[in-house]
């Protein structure tokens, strides 16, 4: 090796890391226990999905018991027809698209208000001892309460209309968002904040350019968790006093023993949940590409 004076050539030799996500061709001998090697397999996922359908089919064909019979267990064809009929004729005078959109819209409204209120409150709790002291008791007290336990109160206070349901979803999501935002603020590294101060940034600039972007990954995670909780809460909430909505449709269908409609509703909720999570992950990649790379 030749010696070079580092003063003459202060390092043009550092290498750039390979782009994230693109694995270089490797010949690893150890893959069991290596998390980076476990990224899933599309062919096996397809087989798994087909397998689930086959199990459904077999149980249906082979089963004629108290649990599995024509009244309790719809065929795939019946469910597909229920979905088709739902979107064309509707069920009990309500189109399936209307049911789906109504439920989705309730979730969106509840989440919207939870984010609008929850993020600033979480930030306040992460930035000020006084505000942390003020908000800690309500957050810690309300957080463990299952939203459905409050349903009777919410119906009395806000009525059986849209407001009561949106308020319930807001309540279900709020604490999760507050705690996620607070954690995001508290997770900012001291040296980043110190660096920003040394570079002459004001408190407001540090909030905008350092603390907020640093907290975004945690906020996104809390939004994803809250979305899941909202769907669970919504369907249960729609039992009471709702004419329209996927939960309302499912419970109405149950009363008339329309198990095909029940299963159709369940599947639509599942697909919507997956689609929303995909959308959130897409947003994450677009908005916070630095996630986990600090």
């Amino acid at each position: 090796m030749t010696t070079t004076n580092p003063l003459e050539n202060p390092g043009s030799q550092d290498t750039v890391r390979p782009p994230i996500g693109k694995k270089p061709a490797q010949r690893k001998t150890v893959t069991f226990g290596d998390g980076s090697e476990v990224t899933g397999s599309v062919p096996w996922s397809v087989i798994s999905l087909v397998g689930l359908m086959v199990v459904w089919f077999i149980v249906k064909v082979g089963g004629d018991s108290a649990m599995v019979n024509d009244r309790t267990f719809p065929t795939q064809g019946q469910v597909i027809k229920a979905v088709y009929d739902g979107f064309t004729e509707g069920y009990r005078n309500v189109n399936l698209a209307n049911n789906t959109w109504t439920s989705l819209w309730r979730v969106i409204q509840g989440m919207f208000f939870a984010i609008i209120i929850g993020v600033p409150v979480g930030f306040a709790m992460g930035l000020s001892n006084t505000l942390r002291g003020i908000f800690d008791p309500p957050v810690e007290l309300f957080r463990p309460i299952p939203p459905l336990a409050l349903l009777p109160l919410f119906i009395v206070w806000f009525g059986i209309g849209e407001l009561g349901k949106v308020m319930l979803l807001f309540f279900a999501a709020l604490w999760i968002i507050i705690i996620g935002s607070r954690a995001g603020v508290l997770g900012v590294s001291k040296s980043k904040v110190h660096a920003a101060y040394s570079l002459g940034a004001s408190k407001l600039q540090i909030l905008r350019h350092v603390i907020l972007p640093n907290a975004l990954p945690e906020i996104f995670t809390s939004i994803r968790v809250a979305l899941g909780v909202c769907w669970g809460t919504l369907v249960a909430a729609e039992i009471t006093g709702a004419e329209v909505g996927l939960g309302a449709m499912i419970f109405a269908a149950k009363n008339f023993f329309r198990m095909d409609v029940v299963v159709a509703g369940i599947i639509i909720i599942g697909v919507l949940g997956v689609a929303m999570d995909f959308f959130m992950r897409f947003l994450e990649r677009k908005l916070i590409p630095w996630r986990g790379k600090g």
Partner: peptide, 19 residues
């Protein structure tokens, strides 16, 4: 009395803004 731009600081690591 406090941090100011007249005194620049370079940290060991992790002080860049990755966003």
């Amino acid at each position: 009395t406090g941090p100011a731009p007249e005194r620049g600081m370079v940290f060991q690591q992790g002080a860049l803004f990755e966003w």
